[in-house]
Design a protein around this nucleic acid. Structure first.
Lengths: 225, 225
DNA sequence: CCAAAAGTGTTCCGTCTACACCCATGG
DNA sequence: CCATGGGTGTAGACGGAACACTTTTGG
């Protein structure tokens, strides 16, 4: 291979994934302990190095798949972190990605296998290196977009109740929402479909289950909630 | 230096800057021709490699300074581009930054010296590699933020008329704005100050000059236009 | 004196907000 | 039968959108 750029420095490039889940009305992220030096044992995001034969996006998908066994999850690039000394070992530039998954889809056996756990956002410990910054950027991104992109459904099962959906919004925005106003808006959005099914898990009376109709949304991808 | 991550691949990391300017009621970007192989001669964004002793943000600032001779310009990271074959030579991962400058602050001699020129966004040529994608992402970012962050002033001189300001919004959003409604909103924003000065350049009658009071904005950094 | 840009208010309509009570059911 | 969460409507405030004419002055 011809060398075009000799004389310039190379760096390790890594990806770190902020995986959000929603459980018991709380927003959580999947955290583990760093399994390599330097920083071994510290709380950290799950990540990995970008290989030469894969794009950065592919590396992020691969890392996410390694951890969850799931493909085609919602994922977005958040920000690239490139401080010289951000990694105490060598020069590593890291691209942070944000993923949203339904906690129930996540195989609980994998928690032990990968030694990760769901940690409430509000109880976030001090993380390795600049990982706290990554989490903060990711939350900012979610807050900015949740009202104009159909993100929220990625955190819920296929079928969900309106109360669950409202709780997702409340958890991400960090503020309470009026139930009647929320449901009024939902009624105007035709790709949030009411089904005939009733959820009896959370209440005695039972709550109607709804579904996000992705096809219908894609025909006219305008979202405002 | 201890080597922690041997076995993993390194890559060149570069920065590319999308420099927006506003001139004659048009949004323009500063473009040049690539001065190295591969791709020599193609239209391209101005960029450079990230050195080992500087952060990625610093590299972007340095590159911007090399080109403009200006410091402390408005600059934001846009997105990182990491396709395997995005660079036809070697593996290069590039972080795109967006900068806003006042065209009048840019020394015209530098245009020749660096062989760059202001190109209207609407007349954008085919650019090297994925640079068109970078420009598009940058515009999307501007559109998303112009209504909630005081970006627009970076494209104008210290003193500007309301018509100029309105034209910036129209150029970025790509749609016409009602003059009366626009000016009504401006009146409610107290950190956009009217001065006693009159601009006679663009009209016989003369137009009042305004100023963005940054200090006042920073005391309560809420923006909505 | 006229072309060209600056400047100025009002009305209407739709959207957001605040707010309280009845319903259905399992235990 | 009652505790628990599900479900519903209305009135007032507010903000955005539409819309046309007068002013100033250099050439």
């Amino acid at each position: 291979m011809t060398e075009f750029y000799t004389g310039h420095s190379k760096a390790f490039v890594s990806v770190d994934v902020i995986i959000f889940g929603f459980d018991h009305d709380k927003l959580k992220i999947l955290l583990g302990h760093r399994n390599m030096d330097p920083g071994r044992g510290e709380w950290a995001l799950y990540g990995g190095f970008v290989n030469n034969n894969e794009s950065v996006d592919e590396a992020a998908s691969r890392v996410l798949y390694e951890l969850t066994g799931l493909k085609d999850l919602y994922m977005k690039q958040v920000h690239t972190f490139g401080a010289v000394d951000r990694d105490p070992g060598e020069r590593v530039i890291s691209v942070a990605y944000c993923a949203l998954i339904n906690v129930n889809d996540y195989d609980k056996n994998l928690l032990e296998e990968h030694e990760v756990q769901w940690v409430e956002l509000e109880k976030l410990p001090k993380l390795y290196s600049d990982h706290n910054k990554m989490v903060n950027k990711a939350i900012t991104l979610l807050r900015r977009r949740i009202n104009t992109e159909p993100l929220s459904f990625n955190l819920l099962p296929e079928l969900f109740t309106l109360t669950q959906l409202q709780h997702v919004y409340e958890a991400i925005l960090g503020e309470e929402i009026d139930k009647r106003n929320f449901r009024k808006k939902i009624k105007t959005i035709d790709f949030i479909e009411k089904t005939d099914l009733i959820d009896k898990e959370t209440s005695k009376r039972g709550a109607a289950l709804y579904r996000f109709n992705k096809k219908m949304y894609l025909e006219e991808p305008v979202f405002k909630l």
